[in-house]
Design a protein around this nucleic acid. Structure first.
Lengths: 225, 225
DNA sequence: CGATAGCTTGAGAGTACTCAAAGTGGGTGG
DNA sequence: CCACCCACTTTGAGTACTCTCAAGCTATCG
């Protein structure tokens, strides 16, 4: 998932219709928090659709700088290969179940056209989502980045609390920082700012309540009120 | 093209084998510099492979901030849709020729399996390239960004001059800035720094000579010598 | 040859970073 | 069951990098 403010043209999230299109080729994979599904450079044998839980896709620079490419939420497809290898690490943030699909499906489409087509569309949606994320990384301030992040999480996996909305954050502050192109300190300070301005409260480290969704959305778009 | 330093795992550039896989459905499209191929929000009727020339893909924020998503060089596929619409503007930077392919190819794969498969692989490669670009936007300094940019252009479209290498830059400084998440002033200053350190010379605004490719590569990876 | 858009340079400001220290919370072992 | 420990988070102070605003420069095109 590439957390951004969706534009009018970008598709809203929908659980990709992979489950059910075909007989699953294997039973689901289970990962405990902290377990790795694959590493950068590993040969791709399987694609996965997240059934439940959250995974984190990361890339590393030789000097240790890290970029979180995406968080994988239920419905997301993980592990698209280019030239046969994984180009990120994938670690589970929570208890996670995934449905594997053979990579070979991408090679011979004839065997299962429906699944093949679903994967292609998942790839196209991913490209679109990544383009949104470019704008966030390249052109938004720390405030806008964090507000955008919370808005999208709220829309996709938030739970309604009537006037407000609760968002669970299974990832660490440094995961968020590496996703948004910030430092942990800046992420922390920005959370504090949002709390001080009464837009959110921080129930605990992994739970944020959004009290003023409209204000948060405005902040995500650079309106400084 | 998503200009980055390729990692060991990412595929090196290869002209995608679309031309020749099928009888082109239409003759090539020609664009003069400054002409738009499509705008964000337009319905996708065609995909295009750049035959010659360079195009620029951009997205805009409502307040005018701009992100250059990619530069399209010969071989690149332009116009992947999500939910049927273009999510960038596409403008030609030079005289450009493109080979159009019907979007419907993405829907019914059966009619032309080879082409369908080639498009899927182009999409997968694009995802990989975009992931490289995330690292650049999120985690690299202005110096590293510009050095990375020049390195990749040199590798892909540079011309060999013996010891040094010439790179043509059809895009403006502000295009480069919006691609790298910088301002035009910072891009300009960074060019000047590279020139002062004798790594490059600026033949003219649109032509850079790389005298010390190794030094440039080192700079692109954060080695401050 | 002058107008103009794009590029470069300069000075100063601001945002996010770095380094450092204190606070918090979950987990383990006694 | 409690206390300690450790990793993570928050806060603070100062710095540095990039941005903003502004002016001069260059090249291209009528």
């Amino acid at each position: 998932m590439y957390v951004t403010i969706p534009t009018e043209n970008s598709s809203t999230f929908a659980f990709l219709p992979l489950c059910g299109t075909t007989t699953p080729q294997t039973i689901q994979t289970h990962l405990e928090p902290g377990a790795y599904l694959y590493y950068e450079g590993d040969e791709v044998e399987w694609l996965y659709q997240v059934t439940s839980g959250v995974v984190r896709l990361t890339r590393l620079l030789s000097d240790g700088r890290r970029q979180v490419i995406a968080f994988g939420y239920p419905g997301d497809i993980i592990g698209f290969p280019a030239s046969g290898n994984h180009h990120t690490d994938c670690e589970a943030l929570t208890d996670t179940y995934l449905q594997p699909y053979r990579r070979s499906i991408l090679e011979g489409g004839a065997s299962d056209p429906k699944l093949y087509s679903a994967l292609l569309h998942a790839a196209l949606n991913e490209i679109s989502a990544m383009q949104d994320h470019f704008m966030m990384l390249g052109r938004k301030s720390a405030n806008e980045k964090l507000a955008s992040f919370l808005c999208v999480l709220a829309a996709r996996v938030g739970t309604d609390l009537g006037a407000s909305r609760s968002v669970n954050l299974p990832m660490s502050r440094s995961d968020i920082a590496d996703f948004l192109g910030l430092t942990t300190e800046t992420v922390s300070r920005t959370f504090t700012q949002l709390r001080n301005s009464k837009v959110i409260t921080i129930e605990n480290i992994h739970t944020v309540i959004i009290h003023r969704p409209t204000a948060l959305l405005a902040l995500s778009q650079g309106h400084h009120t």
